[in-house]
Each structure stands twice: as structure tokens, then as C-alpha cells.
Design a protein around this nucleic acid. Structure first.
Lengths: 245, 245
DNA sequence: TTTGTTATTGTGCGTAAAACAATATGAGAC
DNA sequence: GTCTCATATTGTTTTACGCACAATAACAAA
């Protein structure tokens, strides 16, 4: 309740992105190394991609540009999910050092808008071309991050699970155009961190009208070939009215 | 992409609260009259309660204090649900006028964090004691509001429906300690804007272990008296683990 | 033809959603 | 006390889904 008395208070506003990529067997998050500070070897120095918003820039647009910059995906799932505004969220000594030395910011307080994005990691995109200080890290093996970024990541994972139940189409952004039911099942298992019965799973997904079987099968596999399926957006949108209510 | 070049950009940050009250037969939202400007009779002049955050103040705390100020409820459901940061959201002429004349703000850009709160309207609380410029308005009859507040309200209503499915306890904050199943059903019907079959509804709610029947009935009603029920928080919290997964 | 490996499929049970109408109960009128 | 009015309360059937279970089909290589 520390009133300033007048209305001339201006906090910083930033966006931070939890960029989640699926590699085909695990869910990974994009982390940046704060490698601009060289004399802090004992500090982990990892953070989520993020920056202050520009003058006259919508936070949504800032998040979109971060996504483009680091991953290059233009039309991925991208959702603002929470604001982190604790006045002390940037006040740890290491974080203050970095803000001052690397970004040339004074003791500034920063209110950040957190975004969540999901996409498929293709071999080409694993290393962002523009900057080598970025790396993918499995969400289960994330070390201590700067600021409250561990908390932001944790909230993002909770959020994404909620959203998948309300909008299953999110899942299919993590798969190639053609996929087998095994791939689909593995993805659900990774997302919810639990195993799923094969038979029940087949029955369930085959009820969905937007999952269409192709006349195509795996080739050159040393066992029975699995059928390929694809996700049909048109059927999904028609079907939406029923499942959402 | 209007970069400032340096990192010294400071937008305003505010919180706005969608305070939803249930009067027993309809859902209402608390609106404030921008009555400080007297020479704009043709302008509706209604807005959601909100203000800039103070120096060193967490947005959550600011929202909590707004809630206390206007409704006086201390432990109500209060949830941050979305950020509105379009640079042009405060640029309509009427809104600019109001900002300058009433709040003494220059052309400032404002990023706002929107909160959602739900509670019961008791006769005592319908008119906030401190300020008579506040009024309840049925959510279906809300006129044009200042800024993007109509959009904020719309998003809040979508959000609350999602949240009730995930956490039914929210519903019981809108009812008195003792209530009949008719009152409970009417509330669900108002919330989802659809009628519900009486028999199926009774069967469904009676499965909930946290809905306990009392040995008490309505009195002085010209028909069969309905039984009273209450919501049991302890049973609900025990039960939570099952329904959430 | 056999073998190894994975893909695919069916049955039973318990629970819940949805669509239906008849009976019970309280207060007041006669 | 009986009747009437208005609302409260309750049950059955059908259909769908979640969940727990194991046997069969298909492909490639030996």
C-alpha cells in the first residue's frame, strides 16, 4: 500500500514466452543463456525468452515477434495466460546484476505478461539460426531460472493441460500432417505424464469425426505397418459447437 | 513495431475488476458513473471499477483493495483472467477527455490487468456506502462502457463459465448459507442461460458429497416446503482430488 | 514356413447424461 | 376434516462413455 500520491507512476511492462516444443518423444522448453555477463560462472544464467514491450506495441504483438524471432513459426498456438506483477519478482541480487549490466536497466520494477506457445520441433528449427545462446531443455529437467521464470513455466504447464481438454485441436499442432495413433498416444502420455490404455485410446479417438484415416501406411518398418491419420480442421470446426457446450 | 531505441519506455499499468453479483434472480455487474465530467451529457459515462497500480503494489493486491472498496467482501473469489494492452484501447476522444479532466492523466497509454470476482448481492451491499456513483446492472442490459470495458466484461463471462466446470465451489459463493435446490438450479440456469431438467438436476447434485441436506425446511410458503441444503467446504476439499484429475 | 515385433480390435461392468411424468406435501379455503 | 392449489420430490429407460481386461492380425526377416 505504498501510494505515490500522484498518478505519475510508470512500471516497466514486458512479455515472457514459454515456448514449448515437442520433439517426438519429450516436451521441451526453449531457454536462453544470459551469457552476456561473463564473470558470474556460478550462476545458472538461464531464462525464458522475453523483453520489454515497445512504445505503442500491443503485448500480443510483442509475444508474436518473440515467437518469430526464436522459433520462426508464424501461425502457432500462442496464448497469453497470466500476469506476474509481484514488485519483488526482479529483486534477487543476481537478477538485478543482469538487468543492470546486460540490459542497462536501473532498479526497475517489471510487470510481465506471460505467453504460452506450442509447436513441433523439426530438426531444422532445433537451433535458432540467429542466436546460438538458445537451447531446448526437457521440461522435467529445467534447472533454476532467472526471476520467477520457474514459476511461470510451472503455471504454463498447468494451463496447457486445461486448454487441451477444452480444445483438443491444440494437440495436433505438435504432430506432423500424417501421424500414427501410436504417435498421438505418446503425445498424450507425455502431456499428462501418465500411461494410457491402447484399446480405450483407439476407441476414444476414433469417435472424433475430425480424425480421418488415410489409405497410407508406414513403410520399411520391421513389423506390422501402422496406418496414418490426419487431423481435419473443417470437420473439427463443425464439431466444435457440440463439445464446447 | 515502433521501437523506441532505448529501454526507457514506461507504460501505465492498471487493474480493472469485473465484479459480478447475483441478486437471487439475475447476474449483475458493478458499474461506476464517470460523473466527474459534467458537460458530456450525451456520453454514457459508465465504466468498470479500476485504477492505476501504486508504486510497489502487486496487481493482485490492487484488485483486492478495489473489491474491498466497492463491495466490502474480503474473501470472495477473485481471479486475474486477462491482460488488455492494445495501445489504442484508451484513445477514443471521450475516454481521452475523461482521463485528462478527471484523472489528470496525459495522453498516457494504459495496459490493464482484468480481474473477475463473484459474490452474492445482499440488500445491505447493493449500494456501496462510500460512494453513490456505483450501481448494479444486469449483465444482459449493459450499455456502452468506456474504453474496451464491454469487451472485458464479455471475456469475463466466458471465463467464469469455464471456471465453474473446473471448480463448482464457485457457485456456492453466490448463494446464502442455507439454500433450496430450486435456488441452486435457478443459479445454474442463469449462469449458462439455459433451462435444466429438474429430475436430472436433483440426481446430479445429490451425488456430490459436499452438498449436505439439512433438517430444515421453508416456512410460511403456500405450497409444499422445500428442504434446505448447505455447502460443506471440508467435504469439498477432500473430494477435489477426484474431480480435478 | 517360422519367428519376432508391433498394430489393431472386442467384451463386460459401472457410472453418468438425457429424455421422459407421476406422486408427495404444505397452506389455505370450504 | 376435506378439498384445492402450487410447488417439491422422486424413478425408469435408453444411450453413451470411462475403465479394466487379452487375443488376433500384419509386416519383415530369418
Amino acid at each position: 500500500m505504498n501510494k505515490t500520491g500522484n498518478n505519475s507512476f510508470y512500471p516497466h511492462v514486458s512479455v515472457d514466452c514459454v515456448l514449448l516444443g515437442y520433439s517426438g518423444d519429450s516436451l521441451q522448453v526453449l531457454l536462453l543463456e544470459k551469457n552476456l555477463v561473463e564473470n558470474h560462472a556460478s550462476f545458472s544464467g538461464l531464462k525464458l525468452p522475453g523483453r520489454l514491450i515497445y512504445d505503442n506495441e500491443d503485448p500480443d504483438r510483442a509475444a508474436q515477434s518473440l515467437l518469430s524471432e526464436w522459433v520462426g513459426v508464424r501461425y502457432a498456438y500462442l496464448k497469453q495466460f497470466k500476469v506476474f506483477g509481484d514488485p519483488d519478482r526482479t529483486s534477487r541480487p543476481q537478477d538485478l546484476n543482469w538487468l543492470q549490466e546486460a540490459v542497462d536497466l536501473k532498479i526497475g520494477r517489471i510487470v510481465t505478461v506471460a505467453y504460452l506457445s506450442l509447436f513441433r520441433i523439426t530438426s531444422r528449427k532445433i537451433q535458432p539460426a540467429a542466436n546460438l545462446s538458445a537451447r531446448w531443455c526437457p521440461v522435467n529437467e529445467v534447472p533454476n531460472l532467472a526471476f520467477d521464470h520457474n514459476q511461470i513455466l510451472k503455471d504454463a504447464l498447468i494451463e496447457i493441460r486445461k486448454n487441451i481438454r477444452l480444445d483438443p485441436s491444440i494437440i495436433y499442432r505438435l504432430l506432423p500432417a500424417k501421424f500414427t495413433l501410436l504417435e498421438l498416444r505418446r503425445l498424450y502420455e507425455v502431456m499428462y505424464d501418465q500411461t494410457i490404455d491402447v484399446r480405450n485410446f483407439h476407441k476414444k479417438v476414433k469417435r472424433s469425426p475430425y480424425l480421418v484415416a488415410l489409405d497410407e501406411k508406414e513403410e520399411n518398418v520391421p513389423h506390422r505397418a501402422a496406418r496414418y491419420y490426419r487431423f481435419d480442421k473443417v470437420s473439427y470446426n463443425r464439431h466444435l459447437g457440440l463439445t464446447t457446450l
